[in-house]
Design a protein around this nucleic acid. Structure first.
Lengths: 194, 194
DNA sequence: AGCAATAAATAGATCGCGTACAATAATGAC
DNA sequence: GTCATTATTGTACGCGATCTATTTATTGCT
């Protein structure tokens, strides 16, 4: 009961796209060019990606899965906000200091514009949703709903700032987790005492 | 030196668009339909709006101006983080409890999807940029760049959570500034002590 | 082997956003 | 009146994204 196997892998499309983005920028690269270089038909692109912008955020999609896993594995004994912090650091640990996603380091030559930033932000929102879902089950008291979402969006914002700085600091930087810790810890302590 | 006066006002396009969005949703409404109802040509739309999604976030654009003004008017004597909090509250004060932007309350019937959320997030990013610019001139010490951006993104995230809750709580809610205070204050105290 | 069932890949068409460029209309300055 | 300036309109086009139908490749059953 298994139909035709996937011939053109998703990775080939990503590679072809990365090359073209670096050569001539994101906006000037058409989906047709990507599929031609990958040796498949144009329509095949949409079997693997819903939108062109998804090509750049594959790494972030993986990190979303890591975050939900880490949150799901959190013990009930640890305080909720601490669990969030640990899950964030564990997720960040998957990014070694040496190699950062292309979209972060090469956004200049790729000509990343608002559309791209927005697509990245949509990914960040998914991370926030995961954290909010976790917190809304653990936090109690009045304002729990507001606090859950506020914590989630605030801490994701801080983490995004950390990622941006980390990428900008070049290959000689410290691991991403250090940056995330410095940016996110104040947020969580602030909510813990307030 | 004043050429042809503007005949079709921006407000008419916004009204026509709001009607159509409520009638048939955002995605199913074309720019041509909007301009037809407003009685202008399709191209005229692009004299007033760069993209279709801008129609929904006009109120947020006004709030961005209010925020930059409030930040610019901040006295040098007040601590930077306090100045940010006061500016946020002043900006939120412009939204009375009774009337919330359509996009926030009617996003269900309008069929707001990811594209729309992303467009709203792009506006939120501009708010964060304004706060970061303010802070990067005032904060000192190592990590000032990271901290400036982390504070800005985190506090804007918290404010966004407040706006979402505020809109969801219906017309009988308290003023928006109360929500923003509850969501943003922990973030700022967290960074103040950390 | 032959045959259905399933699923991927392709082809072809269409819609609508957004851009570019030229042409026209309405105003004030002279 | 002429001229410069600005808004509006017309026309065309590239490209992203969706849809439907068709072809191709694989598995499992007889």
């Amino acid at each position: 009961m298994a139909g035709r196997p996937r011939a053109s892998s998703q990775g080939m499309l990503e590679e072809a796209a990365s090359e073209l983005f670096l050569e001539q920028g994101y906006a000037k690269t058409t989906i047709e060019q990507i599929t031609q270089r990958a040796g498949v038909s144009r329509n095949t692109f949409f079997n693997y990606f819903g939108q062109k912008s998804e090509l750049l955020w594959v790494e972030l999609d993986a990190s979303l899965k890591a975050l939900t896993d880490a949150l799901g594995a959190a013990s009930d004994a640890t305080p909720p906000l601490e669990a969030v912090e640990q899950a964030l650091l564990a997720t960040a640990a998957a990014f070694p200091a040496g190699r950062a996603p292309l979209v972060l380091t090469q956004h200049e030559t790729m000509g990343i514009d608002d559309e791209l930033r927005a697509a990245g932000l949509a990914r960040a929102l998914q991370h926030a949703d995961a954290i909010e879902l976790f917190l809304s089950c653990r936090l109690t008291g009045q304002d729990a709903a507001l606090r859950s979402r506020a914590v989630a969006l605030a801490v994701v914002g801080a983490a995004a700032a950390a990622v941006g700085r980390w990428a900008a600091d070049g290959p000689a930087r410290e691991p991403l987790a250090d940056y995330v810790a410095r940016a996110a810890h104040p947020v969580l302590t602030g909510f813990a005492i307030g």
